[in-house]
Design a protein around this nucleic acid. Sequence first.
DNA 1: TTAGGGTTAG
Length: 617
Amino acid sequence: MVVCLQVQIHRISLGTSFWPGEQLQHSSFSGSAKHEKHRNLSLVCVSNMREFDQTALVSAGKYLQNASTISEAISLVKKHLHQGSTIDSYMYVDVLQRCFKHKDLTSVKQVHDCILKSGMDQNPYVANKLMRVYIRCGKVQDARHVFDKLVKKNVFNWTTMIGGYAEHGRPADAIEVYNQMRQEGGRPNEVTYLSILKACACPVGLKWGKEIHAHISHGGFRSDVPVQTALVNMYAKSGSIKDARLVFDEMAERNVITWNVMIGGLAQHGFGQEAFSLFLQMQEEGFVPDSTTYLSILTATACSSAGALGWVKEVHRHAVKAGFDSDMRVCNALVHVYSKSGSVDDARLVFEGMLDRDVISWSAMIGGLAQNGCGHEAFSLFLKMQREGVIPNVTTYVSILTASASAGALEWVKQVHNHARKAGLGSDFRVCNALVHMYAKSGSIDDARLVFDQMSVRNVFTWNAMIGGLAQHGCGQEAFSLFLRMRREGVVPDAITYMSILNASASTGALGWVKEVHRQAVQAGLDSDVRVGNALVHMYCKTGSISDARLMFDGMVERDVITWTAMISGLAQNECGQEAFSLFLQMQREGFIPVATTYASILNVCTSTGLAMVEEI
DNA sequence: TTAGGGTTAG
């Protein structure tokens, strides 16, 4: 006790600037006579320790060391508060940090209460700590309350509040605080800019991000590498990869993080080849890729495009050479992207070579197998992971339940469902969505419906899975009534819903309500979606209304090979061989490569109209 | 004393 008191005394004698609330509440010390203060305090210390206990400054950590639990620490704080002793900022911060360590929000509230009683809520340092703790516990509103009550805010307080909103994906609130800061004459520093740019790193943040870019340029942060890197990141994440590249190219100085941000941005926008070029360039310029570089470039978006496998293998070779083949996260990413780029064998090789595997490794491999037509192997691995003591999570279940349909799948899907039930995930919304989808896909529309009916919460995916399943099973009427019920329940259909319901319509051949769905799709502004358009062309052909199909086809802004094939098949089946054939030629003139179904349709035309056309093919 | 740019599984 004496030791820590002396520390405090020393601080006073050196004239350390104290926040008013930290000064002795019951002492007569003030102003000038430092030596007198020291002498008086020393006298108190020596002559009457008991009396001093009640009035002296309580030094933070050392005093609280005696408290082994949070409640003991809080009791001590309360005791001192009750006795009228002043509790300094260190002590509050110490006890707040203990609360945070144990994620004990109830205790935080109690400390907050003491802080209010002692008036320390106006201490920017204490207030900042309190805000941070609230933010880290997910209580941004409580942090905001502390912030709003703070009369004199410093740059830390502003930045913490902005950063809190950034962490919780609330760009509009972050901007509001940032603007308020500027209006009140606060001067953002580099950390403030990092925080606000993080908040704006999302599609809705772009318009604000651009404004902040201007502030940064005028504020003298043009050569600040972290701030400029944050700008690159903001543009990349908000969808403006061109602006990201512009900022990146203009930077006079960069570090590994800058390169990672730019590479990751390009990869996430599907520019895999460009990301790979930059990956090579950074090394030419003497930068050594770290694990984040590999994680950034190995994203599914970049790696699942045509021709990606070549450079993915090249990146893999670099990773091995640099020793990252023992980095679990890098290997997990490799398993994932190899599966996505269609090389499940490479994925398997990486997976089997891994020394350590976590739930992500297993889920990535299981998902990769499931989606590449190896459902049974995926299921075996799902059982194996559990034998090895790794517990499947929601993603594992969703991964395995998005398998491609294969013979005998229903049997293992039921077993997976059982496992999910036992794991307490049987009614998880995401798992249920995947179950509805998978049951329908593997042939049991009844099981799909059972899961669907038992769900308490449904979203558009749930409805789509069920409607699509019914449509595929030829239950057009049921699909259509479910579509109507979905609308009655206020769920807004998306392109997939219209696509599914149109497939169901085609199977029933009822032109009347097909036209009604078309009308609704137009109303929803989804008739320009290529998938909906394709379904409409297909459906009009099926119902025999070739003129409606052609009208739809001609009006489509975007067409793909499915559009052309649907129209050609429709014409062929409706005895319009000549028109089908000319469209077949036009399709190729426009650069579309016919697929097997296209050829099948056109060959049908040829057999019925004579062999002359075959030679032209 | 406090605020802090990038990162893997559906």
